[in-house]
């Protein structure tokens, strides 16, 4: 060995659950290839028990996260954007390896992801004014509605390595939900790196939990879990699987967002946030 050569430091891509980076409970992993079909790294192949642990972590984090002021949640989501911006080179090179795109395209993808986070961060303390408010009622009551987060949301992320993930996670957590995310099956590594960003960006442990592995294996456990309150099926391409997941989700009346074609680069609209909100209406008597 020549004096200038050094051992290659290979990264172990693990899960992100409860603010920590555990290996899969099952001890399994699967091979992830880059865009040219060459071996890139091993990713954890999560099991149903990892789903279970992640839901427990998300439930534990929910009260604290939902209890924060909307303003503070906005700050935290903005902070994710800040930290992501600081690590953009790592994400650009991962996106290029994963998708085989040009440097310019990879840079544009990171730009879009950062911008999306900032966009949602801004909505954190404005959404309740838009979807809630005072209601006119025929009676001596002050009546107003306000949105509350639904709880723990299971998210099946689409394949876009960074923008796809950010586009489904940011709206869910901005409104005060916590989530268990099944990351893109062919592009799981950026998800794990995004977990590292979350862990250093003031996101409390358990608010975002990232699992890597086959969607068809993990999503049914999320769909049938009685302690999950919503299910985002954006990343489910197989209509038969989506249908079965929706049937399972009906068991405890989860809110379900069906997969649909959408342009992730376009301004998203409020739908992803409002799907996982419950409207709370308060009647308050007025008079002396």
């Amino acid at each position: 060995m020549s004096p200038t050569s050094r051992a290659e430091v290979r990264k172990t891509y693990k899960l992100y659950v409860g603010g920590a980076f555990p290996r899969s409970e099952s001890g399994r992993s699967y091979v992830v290839n880059d865009a040219k079909g060459r071996f890139w790294a091993n990713a954890s192949h999560a099991s149903r028990k990892d789903v279970r642990d992640a839901v427990v972590a998300a439930r534990k984090a929910f009260d604290g996260w939902a209890g924060r002021t909307a303003y503070n949640r906005g700050q935290v989501v903005y902070r994710i954007a800040e930290v992501l911006e600081g690590r953009r080179e790592q994400f650009e090179s991962e996106i290029r390896a994963a998708e085989g795109v040009t440097a310019a395209r990879a840079r544009a993808a990171v730009d879009a992801a950062v911008d999306r986070l900032v966009w949602y961060a801004g909505w954190a303390d404005k959404l309740s004014q838009v979807v809630g408010g005072a209601n006119p009622v025929a009676g001596p009551f002050l009546n107003h509605s306000a949105p509350d987060p639904s709880g723990v949301i299971g998210v099946v992320a689409p394949d876009g390595p960074l923008l796809g993930l950010v586009s489904v996670v940011a709206p869910v957590i901005t409104t005060g939900n916590t989530c268990v995310v099944v990351a893109s099956e062919p592009h799981p590594l950026t998800a794990v790196t995004l977990g590292e960003v979350m862990a250093t960006a003031d996101v409390p442990g358990g608010v975002v939990n990232l699992l890597t592995g086959p969607r068809a294996e993990l999503a049914p456990w999320l769909a049938s879990h009685m302690d999950v309150n919503g299910l985002d099926l954006t990343g489910v391409a197989d209509p038969e699987l989506a249908r079965n997941l929706e049937i399972e989700a009906a068991q405890n009346l989860k809110r379900v967002r069906r997969p649909a074609d959408e342009d992730l680069l376009a301004t998203p609209g409020l739908g992803r946030m409002t799907t996982f909100l419950e409207t709370k209406t308060v009647w308050h008597p007025v008079g002396r």
């Binding site: 839901v55 439930r59 879990h225 009685m226 399972e248």
Partner: peptide, 9 residues
């Protein structure tokens, strides 16, 4: 039941 339950139950 074959599905995970939760503290709500």
């Amino acid at each position: 039941t074959g599905r995970y339950s939760g503290p709500d139950y």
